[in-house]
Simulated scan of single mutants.
Amino acid sequence: MYWSAKIISHNGDKRIAVYFEKNTELISRIRKVEGARWSQTLKVWHIPNTAENQIRFSIIVRQPSKEGLEQIAKFKQWLISKRYSTNTIKTYTEALRAFLTFFNQKNSNEISNEDLITYNNEYIFKNKLSSSYQNQIVNALKLYFKTVKEKKIEIEKIHRPKREKVLPNVLSKEEIKLILTAHSNLKHKTMLSLIYSCGLRRSELLNLLLQDINSKRNIVMIRQAKGKKDRIAPLSNKILQLLRDYYVVYKPKKWLFEGVNGEEPYDARSLSNVLKQALSKVGITKPVSLHWLRHSYATHLLESGTDLRYIQELLGHRSSKTTEIYTHVSTKSLEQIKSPFDDL
């Protein structure tokens, strides 16, 4: 299967042109790259020449060896047998695919510690990949060599980056109120409100079943969330009434928030668009994501006096250190500090 590529100028923009013999499978794969276009004039597929697409491009135009593909399949089967989550399986197998693609001229048994250093420098650093991606690579390779290959290899040779200390993005209560009341569509309003009122992740909201809402106990059951843990979150009277109004109008049968055909849960991308529409309506220009609502929920709880241990349970954090980050964005204590500027 032959591939070649080069940078071209198309309508004044730099693009990556991908050349290959006509093949329906390859066409299907190139189409999945965001911004991919077919040039009728040049008779070639081309994608935007961005840093992100350069990474995607390298995955598409290069392939692991046949032996490498077999190793990826074995690793995937091992992850499935151990009941890893779908997202983790996808992340780890893609990380291994990128690694074995880089060394597609080598048998996996020949890979050494020196190769790990080379990969770190020549792929991760050269492509300016994020520290979180680097950690994913380390985690995937460590598990692969320990389990599938049963090979002693100093995985620490791929140095783990120092964890970036990034504070969570938090909205004010006034901004939250604007966002949650922006939609006249009851379904859209209810979805956004439930995320904030219970501190849910996007996937947790979309995976809720009708039976997960317990109106008698005023709780919502969040099943098999991150880390394969169940947890419960309290439902306020206000959100319960909103859920009752929603049920009367939409009458969901299985999923609390159903997709178009009613057989699948609501689409994740569509939910993100619901938030974008709300932001546009109220004139908020910050790059707000659905996770900001969860961060805001935790911070507002902390500022109202809720103990960190309870917030940890409500969010489903494994470690208290994860929850403690909200102490750095809470303004409650800061408001007690008087600036010396005021005394001038």
Results as ranks from 00 to 15, higher is better:
residue 84 Y to D: 10
residue 132 S to C: 08
residue 57 F to A: 09
residue 69 L to V: 10
residue 105 Q to I: 11
residue 167 L to T: 11
residue 184 S to T: 15
residue 94 E to S: 14
residue 146 K to D: 09
residue 188 H to T: 10
residue 123 Y to N: 08
residue 87 N to Q: 15
residue 119 Y to V: 05
residue 132 S to H: 09
residue 183 H to T: 07
residue 176 I to Q: 01
residue 178 L to D: 12
residue 183 H to P: 01
residue 191 M to H: 03
residue 83 R to S: 11
residue 97 R to M: 07
residue 192 L to C: 08
residue 190 T to R: 02
residue 127 N to D: 05
residue 165 K to D: 15
residue 184 S to K: 13
residue 191 M to I: 07
residue 191 M to L: 06
residue 103 F to G: 08
residue 60 I to C: 01
residue 118 T to W: 05
residue 97 R to C: 06
residue 127 N to Y: 08
residue 56 R to I: 05
residue 160 R to C: 11
residue 68 G to M: 02
residue 70 E to F: 08
residue 75 F to M: 06
residue 143 L to T: 11
residue 181 T to S: 14
residue 117 I to N: 07
residue 137 I to G: 01
residue 102 F to N: 03
residue 86 T to K: 15
residue 73 A to P: 03
residue 153 I to Y: 07
residue 55 I to P: 00
residue 67 E to A: 14
residue 161 P to R: 12
residue 122 E to N: 13
residue 166 V to W: 01
residue 150 E to P: 03
residue 102 F to K: 03
residue 62 R to W: 05
residue 155 I to T: 08
residue 153 I to V: 13
residue 127 N to W: 02
residue 61 V to D: 00
residue 70 E to D: 11
residue 73 A to S: 14
residue 112 S to M: 10
residue 146 K to F: 02
residue 78 W to G: 00
residue 70 E to V: 14
residue 143 L to H: 11
residue 121 N to M: 08
residue 150 E to T: 13
residue 159 H to R: 15
residue 102 F to P: 00
residue 101 T to W: 03
residue 166 V to Q: 14
residue 188 H to R: 09
